[in-house]
Design a protein around this nucleic acid. Sequence first.
DNA 1: TTGAAAGCGCTAACAT
DNA 2: ATGTTAGCGCTTTCAA
Lengths: 328, 328
Amino acid sequence: MTTIQDVAKQAGVGAATVSRVLSGKGYVKQETRERVTRAIEALNYTPNEMARNLFHGKSGIVAVIIPELSHPFFSELVNAFEVSLCEVGYQTMVCNTFYEKNYELRYLEMLRRQRVDGIIFGAHTSLASEQYQSLQRPVVGLDRKLAETVPYVAADHEEGGRLAAEELIRSGCRNVVQFGEVEDSVITPSSQRHFVFRKVVEAHGITCASYPKQPNYSAYNTYQESAARLFEEHPDVDGIFGTDLYAAACLQYALAHGIRVPEDVKIVAYDGTYITKFLHPEMTTICQPIRQLANEAVRMITEMINVNEIKENKVILPISIRRGNTTT
Amino acid sequence: MTTIQDVAKQAGVGAATVSRVLSGKGYVKQETRERVTRAIEALNYTPNEMARNLFHGKSGIVAVIIPELSHPFFSELVNAFEVSLCEVGYQTMVCNTFYEKNYELRYLEMLRRQRVDGIIFGAHTSLASEQYQSLQRPVVGLDRKLAETVPYVAADHEEGGRLAAEELIRSGCRNVVQFGEVEDSVITPSSQRHFVFRKVVEAHGITCASYPKQPNYSAYNTYQESAARLFEEHPDVDGIFGTDLYAAACLQYALAHGIRVPEDVKIVAYDGTYITKFLHPEMTTICQPIRQLANEAVRMITEMINVNEIKENKVILPISIRRGNTTT
DNA sequence: TTGAAAGCGCTAACAT
DNA sequence: ATGTTAGCGCTTTCAA
């Protein structure tokens, strides 16, 4: 590889002059500039990023940590992150945790090793909050309340739960089922929706059962199995609320078993990834503001990287409903 | 940030000794080792990856370049890459090109800048093959024949086209339509399937029309619009062949318009991403061997990084059909 | 068994 | 306007 020294020698100047030409900062006589430029081209020189990184003490990379990239929600999310980060001059490193704790630790370590300048943590996490608290470095939680000191951005999941509930109420449901535990998780703001959903429907005298969400995405069949179990155990169900894939699996089961949607059972999906647009009937969905989530998180992380502190420690973004034909 | 010098001072030894303890190479007296270890812990020291990278002349990162991460095929692909690369000790950088030429150039530049040790190029590319040829560095094409000298890995798309054709023939179709041009692209092996598909069905006296694929994914509606156009312009169509999303959109249109699947029209999808498993009726699909594609490409790129050359310059992987209920 | 020093390739301060 | 030099933090000879 050719270095800046090679170029300097070739052009008969010092390395600093080449650096000045490259960066455009500082005074360089027009003639020298041309000589340097020619040398650069002659040698086909490109500056070494690693050396620059070392000097500047930053890698220009932000890691985005998620459970599993192949999950449609996370792939749309990381896509949005790549766009946002690119706009502010950062490169994106993707990291799957596959729901494993030691992966999370390993990725946190990257930050300490200065391999990345910041981390956006969208993974289902199980680490003690001290582990985040301790590292005083740029970390932003995405839909994750990692520790008191770690800022996060999330959609307004309470509103999301309410919107879903109201939609099913309006459609006249009496026995609804949702996929997701109603536990008031401290870490994951998104679990709030289940709490609110149940509260709102029950306030209308509607029966509400909960099915556990499988933590693991890659085993596709879990969705279909969960759907089958739901219909078998709740033959009287007339309203379903779950993330896109649960909703899709339930719709699929219903159609395959002569259960009419929306006549016999109404479905409201959550997340709003593209799959909901390819189904028939079209799926009524609560849509997470994926781009805005990414934009806000990127704004926060760059702020933390640059000034090493941040004013607000929490950003909640509005959520909306897109009506399809799985509700009435 | 605490450096190796700080640790050395704290332990009362030289930096080299600390380095030896860290790497486990070279002789260190047991007692010194303990002293160093204690100093490391006391200072909560972590080695700086950027300095290491500079010294070793490698970043430990491989870039995966794709048109758009949110497309289900590419998200499953990059997911598989992340897994494979992780296994061999590399980190994954994702790069969306959004079908833009200057993005491709920019990413190629990263390789020259030694920001990444290798590039896996899965993007729809439009650069002149010299641009790849010229850089004598680790590049592997994924489903892309970038230049004579650039090795690539691809699924056996000819077989894929044949399988799809035979499935529709077997199902008794007489008028089929495929999404994708029958141009014998030099760059993209996957376009081979359209050529073979047409050849095989026409050999059976079946009419075969082609619809152009929209290059751009993010505009969701293009799929629905294409599907609508197809059915309007070809009311007699009884067999459709297209990538998962085209297939899904056609199924959706058919169901919405009282066209029965598979009675009136048969559909075969191509790629086999998860969406095909969530539809009703279940989609008959030609499945790309996504994991194997990633494994092979990673094997090739690591070989190129390590020995800077590679024996085979082309790997074609077998492809298979998964029968659902959109064919008979 | 250990330390000093050179150097990876770059940039910025300081001279000139 | 330009060159020299001192690092950035690490690893690896080379001496001791």
